[in-house]
C-alpha cells in the first residue's frame, strides 16, 4: 500500500505522485540461546543414556603426540578381563588409532572430523548407537589431539581427563587454561623421560592447580607402567561411584 495516498496500487508511480511504500518495521526475534546449546542437548541425551546403562564415559583430551592412544591401549590391556570396554576414536583423518584399539580385541569406532578440530556430541551419540549392543561398562572417547576446542564441547562424558606429556613443557596449563579448567583429572604422561629433560614437575603441577584447584593429578608412564595402578584404580572408583551396586565381573 502506498504510504502517501493509501491506494492499493503497487506500481511505483502514478500521474499524481510517486508512490511511497512503507518499510516494514524491524522485527526483533529474541533468542537468548547459548551458541553451544545444540551440542549441549545432544550431550545431555548421551549422558542420560550412559547413566541409565551404567556406562562410565571418559573423554580423553590432549595435544597431539601426548601418548593418549598408547596409554589407552595399556589401560585396556589391564582392564579388559574385568570390564567390557568400548572406544570412540576421534582424528582429523585415518583410522590408525581405531586399528590399534581393535588389536586389543575391544570394539572401536573411528570418527574422522575432516576439517573439524574436536568431537561433537551428536557424532558420539551416533557412534554409541553402534557400540551399545556390546553392553560396555566403560566407554573411552579419545578426542582429537587439540588443547583448545575440545574443552568447550560437552560429549556427555562423566569426566574429561587431560593428558599432558613431559615433552610438551610445564607451562601448558597456563597457556591452554580452558582445557585444564574443564578436566577433572590430569595425567602427566611419559615420566620415564624425565631424567633426559629439564621439565619441572612441581612447577607444572602448580600451574595446573592454579588454573583448576580441584584438579586431581596422577603421574604415569604408559611405557614403563609406572603410576598406572593409580590411574586404573581411579577409573574403577569412578565406575563404582556410577553404580554402587554393580559387582566387578
Amino acid at each position: 500500500m502506498c504510504g502517501v495516498c493509501g491506494c492499493g496500487d503497487d506500481s511505483q508511480t502514478t500521474r499524481k505522485h510517486v508512490h511511497v511504500f512503507a518499510q516494514p518495521a524491524p522485527r526483533v526475534i529474541q533468542l537468548e540461546l547459548d551458541i553451544l546449546s545444540k551440542n549441549n542437548l545432544f550431550a545431555a541425551e548421551n549422558r542420560r543414556q550412559f547413566q541409565e546403562q551404567a556406562v562410565l564415559a571418559l573423554n580423553l583430551v590432549s595435544s597431539p603426540g601426548s601418548g593418549k592412544t598408547t596409554l589407552l591401549v595399556e589401560t585396556i590391556h589391564s582392564l579388559q578381563t574385568d570390564y567390557a570396554i568400548a572406544v570412540i576414536e576421534g582424528d582429523q583423518q585415518t583410522s590408525f588409532d581405531a586399528e590399534r584399539i581393535r588389536a586389543t580385541g575391544v570394539p572401536a569406532i573411528q570418527i574422522n572430523t575432516g576439517k573439524g578440530c574436536h568431537l561433537e556430541a551428536d557424532r558420539i551419540g551416533q557412534a554409541w548407537q553402534n557400540l551399545q549392543s556390546c553392553s560396555p561398562d566403560m566407554l573411552f572417547i579419545e578426542n582429537v589431539g587439540n588443547l583448545v576446542c575440545p574443552s568447550g564441547f560437552d560429549l556427555g562424558e562423566a569426566h574429561k581427563v587431560v593428558i599432558l606429556s613431559v615433552t610438551e613443557g610445564e607451562d601448558k596449563p597456563l597457556k591452554y587454561p580452558d582445557m585444564f579448567h574443564a578436566a577433572d583429572l590430569m595425567l602427566l604422561n611419559k615420566i620415564d623421560l624425565l631424567p633426559y629433560l629439564d621439565f619441572d614437575v612441581e612447577r607444572c603441577l602448580a600451574y595446573a592447580r592454579q588454573v583448576n584447584p580441584a584438579l586431581q593429578i596422577l603421574l604415569v608412564s604408559a611405557k614403563t607402567a609406572e603410576g598406572m595402578p593409580a590411574w586404573l584404580d581411579w577409573i574403577k572408583q569412578q565406575r563404582l561411584e556410577l553404580k554402587p551396586s554393580v559387582e566387578v565381573r
Partner: peptide
C-alpha cells in the same frame, strides 16, 4: 585469595535476530 569464581565474560549467546 584464589581462585576467583568467574561471574561474567565466559558466555557465548545468540541474543537476538533483528529482521529488517
Amino acid at each position: 585469595h584464589f581462585p576467583l569464581e568467574i561471574r561474567q565474560g565466559e558466555q557465548m549467546r545468540i541474543k537476538y535476530l533483528e529482521v529488517l
